[in-house]
Simulated assay, not measured.
Amino acid sequence: MHEQILTDRQRIFGDDDPDTLTSRNNLAGAYESAGRLDQAVTLYEQNLTDCERVLGNDHPDTLTSRNNLAYAYQAAGRLDQAITLYEQNLTDCERVLAKDHPDTLTSRNNLAYAYRAAGRLDQAITLYEQTLTDRQRVLGDDHPDTLTSRNNLEAARRTKDV
């Protein structure tokens, strides 16, 4: 279904239309969910390049595209590439959206997750602590994202203690 939607949007609106970019991102996500990581990474890479060219580096859709590619890199075991993109994305989110924006907090959490996956536990724990503190302040103690942060921090601490 996603393949047909992308094909139709390309035909009707062209490759550079924002809705076409969204469809390409969605198809990459479907590939990723299906375990077709090579295809997902290729589409995410193309989509990020196109988003940067068409929308600019600071557009929210570009930030989302960069995050999605980083996640796909991580899923494919390409942690160094994932961490580089997550670090860039966090810097850009803080500059464009502000340090307390929910998307920035998600970006920080994602970078911490990649650090943890790479065995960089001290860096992961520091970011998880910061993210938890900020989510408690911005979203409240009972928000699902705050609870996720609490869980992630404790999991990283347990991993370090092992």
Rank of each mutant, 00 (worst) to 15 (best):
H2L: 11
R11D: 14
Y115I: 00
R157N: 06
L79K: 08
T62C: 08
A114N: 08
L43R: 03
A82P: 04
Y128S: 02
D142L: 06
Y44H: 15
N25M: 07
D58P: 10
L43E: 01
A118Y: 10
T131F: 00
L27D: 14
A70L: 06
T7M: 09
F13P: 01
F13H: 12
E52Y: 00
T84V: 09
A28R: 14
L85K: 05
C51S: 13
V96L: 04
A156R: 05
V162Q: 15
G119S: 03
Q81F: 06
E87L: 07
E87Q: 15
Q136D: 03
T22K: 04
R135T: 10
T42W: 06
I83T: 13
A117W: 02
L79Q: 13
T126P: 00
P18Y: 04
L139S: 13
R137Q: 15
R9D: 12
L37A: 13
M1T: 14
T131A: 14
Q130V: 02
Q88Y: 07
V138K: 05
S107V: 06
R9Y: 07
G29D: 09
L127V: 01
Y31F: 14
L139T: 13
N25P: 08
P144T: 03
S149I: 12
D141N: 15
N109M: 04
D50E: 14
Q4D: 14
D100N: 14
Q88E: 10
M1P: 12
D15Y: 06
Q136E: 15
V138S: 11
G140C: 06
Y31E: 10
Y31V: 03
M1W: 09
D61R: 04
V162T: 15
L97F: 05
P144G: 02
G14R: 00
R24M: 15
R36K: 15
E45K: 15
Y73C: 09
Q10A: 11
A70N: 08
P18D: 09
R150W: 10
Y115N: 11
L153R: 03
N152T: 02
